[in-house]
Write a protein that binds this DNA or RNA. Structure first.
Length: 458
RNA sequence: GUGGUUGUAGCUCAGCUGGUUAGAGCGCUGGAUUGUGGUUCCAGAGGUCGCCGGUUCGAACCCGGUCUUCCACCCCA
């Protein structure tokens, strides 16, 4: 019985046009990664479950795709657990591998395992799919690509500045104007929490703060109260909600607000330095914006936090993010190794470029020359012509069958081929071919011996 | 994971309070045009109405389940 085929929720097929567009983005990112001195690595699509568990918080653990043990996976389950239907207890008995959830944790694992072979500071990039058992939405998939660049073993703030430049270079190359790179600092956040006396509630405090642009000040206050943050703490944090002006103004306000928190002040100074370096280096299209409500990846970020958001008017969450993590490798037994990294969300960047019509037209021009097929003897001559064109690096093809000219031309038209070559009986006799420019409709005859003439016209 | 939403031709979508043979535009195939596409005209093909079950004399339409899409929450690229 034939059944309708389907693919799992949140996954997609990519047709030739989409692959061309995805490769265009990937190649742009890759090119900049390499000019910035990053080296490529790849890691397995699945890891040992224990490598991933506990690294992304409770929510993250839930979203990790677990792989069922092979063979008789119930073999190791004792009857009591089986009867009890306790998923949490059952889990470790039936699964010990899981699909990669991001590229950062596998990278940390990689660094620890290969520490003796690596030159520090080590700059790596990695472009691979990751998987999350999330509920799909627009721009949110269960299988998607991340493009990560990280440096480990370098403390300097220059690294952060480099990543700002890298974001700018990539988005500028893609023609994406109006991308805002939001910046914050983990120490600023913890400093604030400490000053207002909500130090133990740091996570709840920042998670609530992060929703500012979504639910507004009132909503944030309501959520903070709900999480048990005191009224006076919230009152003290009020100035944060209305932090205004340019980045320098905000820095000044934070300096005053964070008097008395050494860590907080250190965070502010780091941000100030980062702004200063960036100002002297200059930016092309990227806009830099200090945003104290930005609170991402708190499970491992310890310093600067980045988030790139789509240009205003495009309904898409963040299209990239990153930050500094002082001790990511610590959990794998390698202490005191500082890292900074950023990520580009390929799939979301795709959707944004598509919505804004920013993909170059030539991505659809997959064939430069199509040779019409007039029958056996003409086609043989045409094959020789096509072979020469291919050796010259031209994307050329011969229509495989002697179909009606109308059909062959229509095919060329749909494939957006700019030149159609005609090599029929007449041309064969005179040792020439006709090239038709499909845009202008003009035709020109060339000698088969003088291909260069045609190649120049291409 | 919670709540909601969507699904009709290859694509984008109509389809009235349930009523014969489910429509349009685009695309596709053939012809006008046996060495010329993109424009025009003519003709044609193409549908288990997401899937399973129920109500009914009768279901694309109502009910239940399920899958999928998108949205909000959670979280995130």
């Amino acid at each position: 019985m034939a059944q309708k085929p389907s693919i799992p929720k949140g996954t997609r097929d990519f047709s030739p046009g989409e692959v061309a567009r995805r490769n265009y983005i990937i190649n742009t990112i890759k090119q900049h990664f390499e000019t910035f001195g990053f080296l490529p690595i790849e890691t397995p699509s699945f890891e040992n479950l224990e490598t991933l568990l506990g690294k992304y918080g409770e929510e993250g653990d839930r979203l990790i795709f677990k792989i069922l043990n092979s063979g008789d996976f119930l073999d190791k389950v004792d009857p009591h657990t089986y009867q009890g239907k306790d998923s949490a207890a059952l889990l470790p008995m039936i699964t010990e591998k899981a699909l990669r959830y991001d590229l950062t944790v596998p990278f940390a694992r990689y660094v620890v395992m290969h520490q003796n072979e690596l030159q520090f500071p080590f700059k790596r990039y990695q472009i691979q799919p990751v998987w999350r058992a999330d509920k799909p939405q627009k721009g949110r998939f269960r299988e998607f690509f991340q493009c990560d660049a990280d440096v480990v073993g370098a403390q300097s703030l220059l690294q952060e500045a480099e990543f700002v430049q890298l974001y700018d270079a990539v988005f500028t190359s893609l023609g994406l104007k109006g991308v805002v790179l939001k910046l914050n600092h983990r120490k600023v956040l913890s400093g604030i929490a400490q000053i207002i006396g909500a130090g133990e509630k740091l996570i709840d405090f920042t998670v609530a703060l992060d929703k500012m642009d979504k639910i507004g000040q009132e909503g944030v206050v309501r959520e903070m109260k709900q999480k048990g943050i005191s009224e006076e703490a919230i009152a003290k944090a009020k100035p944060l909600f209305s932090l205004a002006g340019d980045n320098d103004d905000k820095i000044g306000q934070l300096r005053r607000l964070l008097q008395g928190s050494e860590a907080g002040l250190q965070g502010v100074e780091e941000l100030a330095t980062l702004f200063k370096i960036t100002e002297s280096l200059g930016l092309d299209e990227l806009q830099l914006q200090l945003d104290v409500t930005l609170a991402r990846g708190l499970n491992y970020y310890t310093g600067t936090i980045f988030e790139a958001s789509a240009p205003a008017g495009v309904a898409m969450g963040s299209i990239g993010g990153g930050g500094r993590y002082d001790d990511l490798t610590g959990i794998f037994g390698m202490q005191d190794l500082s890292g900074v990294g950023i990520s580009f969300g390929l799939d979301r960047i795709y959707l944004v470029l598509e919505e804004l019509g920013l993909f170059p037209e030539e991505l659809d021009r997959t064939l430069e020359v199509l040779c019409v097929n007039f029958g056996a003897s003409e086609a043989l001559a045409a094959s020789r012509l096509v072979k020469k064109l291919r050796m010259a690096g031209v994307r050329a093809d011969l229509y495989p069958s002697e179909a009606k000219l109308q059909k062959q031309f229509k095919y060329a038209n749909n494939r957006k081929v700019p030149f159609v070559l005609l090599l029929g009986e007449e041309e064969l006799a005179s040792g020439s071919f006709v090239a038709k420019d499909m845009v202008s409709g003009k035709q020109h005859t060339y000698s088969l011996d003088a291909l260069d003439e045609f190649l120049e016209a291409l």
